[in-house]
Design a protein around this nucleic acid. Structure first.
Lengths: 343, 343
DNA sequence: CTGAAAGCGCTAACAC
DNA sequence: GTGTTAGCGCTTTCAG
């Protein structure tokens, strides 16, 4: 491949002795070109190392084959796995990706990334910023007149907006029910930051499931963390005080569950005998914690894939002049049983 | 903000009663516009919700203020942290980011991503694919006539190419020396995949440091993993057999070290008494392993930052018509001492 | 200060 | 089949 200075379609035409549109036809595999001309032009293209300018094409076609992605927290593994799914599917569909990372989770400062993407004529946007606080309050207002399709990841479903989310409530039910099934009755909870919708869903599921089983889930049975191992440590220590009779704990993510395991070893709390533990997320390492952690597996990669599928579908729909129908897509988490909760 | 259909500069000019270039001048804060005209145009711009097309501007200016990023393995935390640094710095410099993820580490299939980026007129490229096998054999050939500056992350330094890497050799020395300082003499090593340059550097440092201390480092004192906890488990079990007198082990990353800790608990090997353990990478969780893991801290975020700084600097240099000077930048890892190696 | 004209690299519509 | 013309939205001379 010639990676050198840009060769233009004009230059190719000149050398090949044809007009610009003819070169364009060859490049785009149109049929209305004679075989001889086609071959001649192809040869010149190759010899000169001509690479079509996607930029010029985008401008002229009013279509860029580029998707915008707005994400946040790439230093955490969850968002990265989702992004990985997005890149995979985008590549499969032949779309390029413009990436914008927000500098914090809980912000309504959406204009800079949005402007940047729209200015570059993205055909659609995947908004992969989880709902935290009121950082989605703008969604309804703006969406009505967004110039391109937008699909939201991990936000509370809304009318008239397409979303893709993991069913955290269901995951919370499965986790809590699993502990009940093990004969546990004093089930505590270390929650994620309750400003986060996903964290609230997990906690709510824990409460509801216990209630349904005739067990009370009071505030003293729950402590709030911020997803980090550090916060998990503090939250669990607090919980040990406020709920000493606890015989099981549902921890809202694996990082925090890791701290629970560490404290348990240190304080000679036998797991799972004295305390059964269930985490959430199934990070790669959780199988190698001690003891191996029971957890909820989420397919975050797939989350990204589905979002791209959905937004590309909407783009196609609009291209065909049809009206897009929004939908709320749910992915189901599944329980992975390991040593920390059974036996 | 009006996110609705695109308003063009032409329409703005018409409504404001001025020509297109005048609007352009206002948008770009040029001085040669009368205050009255400026205000009038500004008002129209605001009222109509005009957003300049970065695409058209890129075409016309032959400059896109967009950087290309080629990455791989986003589902792992390392590459994601680096990407996070890249997005941070790019935002700071006002560059957008086109993201391409390779589908595997060890491949020379560089054309698709490269073509895609160049077709979209990126001003520069950050190549964040670590050197594995001969996946960089093309570097010298292509770089000579690359149309835009390219900076490579985590590859073996080369003449005439700009690189930014962590000094893994130095990290390996620090880790091994630390174990020697603890009075250990039988120091084993669980390496990363030896096709990977970084893994080789860490292993080489271990060998050299032991040799310098008058200690032999034979093949039976080392086992190879692939970075995953799973592989770490197998490698360490093998090592326990081939090197039973081992009293310390330097593990090439934290994920694999986690497995070592798990096996140790299971087999009642006291850490650090019977076996001192040092990991590498300082993932967020390693502080909460049991026991807390001594490890090498790398600033992967900074790695990304430095790469963007470098490529932007090169872009500016070229803009000014000057010749770019390549350089090889090294970041130093640092030892983080925790319970797994002392006491 | 302002606007006419040319150009960035390409595609689309339509004569020939 | 092929080339001419117009246009995508903007910037950049440069004359007035």
């Amino acid at each position: 491949m010639n990676t050198n200075k840009r060769v233009t379609i004009k230059q190719v035409g000149k050398i090949a002795g044809v007009s610009i549109p003819t070169v364009s036809k060859v490049v785009n595999n149109r049929q209305d070109v004679s075989p001889e001309t086609r071959e001649r032009v192809k040869k010149v293209i190759k010899d000169m190392g001509y690479r079509p300018s996607a930029l010029a094409r985008s401008l002229s076609q009013q279509r860029s084959y580029t998707l915008g992605v707005v994400t946040v927290g790439l230093k955490y593994i969850g968002p990265s796995r989702t992004l990985s799914g997005i890149t995979d599917k985008a590549r499969e569909f032949g779309y390029a990706l413009l990436l914008e990372e927000m500098d914090q989770f809980d912000t309504n400062n959406i204009f800079p990334p949005l402007q940047s993407l729209l200015a570059r004529h993205v055909d659609g946007i995947v908004w992969a910023v989880p709902e935290v606080g009121d950082n989605c309050s703008w969604v309804d207002d703006i969406l009505n007149d967004a110039p391109v399709p937008v699909v939201f990841l991990t936000i509370q479903p809304r009318q008239g907006v397409s979303t893709v989310s993991v069913d955290n409530y269901r995951g919370g039910v499965l986790a809590t029910q699993h502990l009940l099934n093990q004969g546990r009755r004093q089930i505590g909870h270390v929650s994620g930051p309750l400003g986060v919708w996903e964290a609230r869903q997990r906690k709510l599921a824990w409460q509801d499931t216990l209630k349904k089983a005739g067990i009370e889930a009071t505030d003293s049975h729950c402590a709030e963390g911020d997803w980090s191992s550090r916060s998990g440590k503090m939250a669990f220590e607090k919980l040990l005080h406020s709920y000493p009779e606890m015989d099981a704990v549902f921890v809202a993510n694996d990082q925090m569950a890791l701290s629970v395991l560490q404290i348990a070893i240190r304080q000679k709390i036998a797991i799972p005998k004295d305390l059964a533990v269930v985490g959430y997320d199934n990070v790669d390492e959780s199988e190698y914690y001690w003891p191996a952690l029971t957890t909820m597996n989420l397919d975050q990669h797939k989350l990204g894939c589905r979002a791209v599928e959905e937004v590309v579908h909407q783009i196609e729909t609009v291209q065909h002049g049809e009206k897009i129908e929004t939908q709320n897509i749910w992915l189901s988490p599944e329980l992975v049983v390991r040593d920390s909760s059974v036996g």
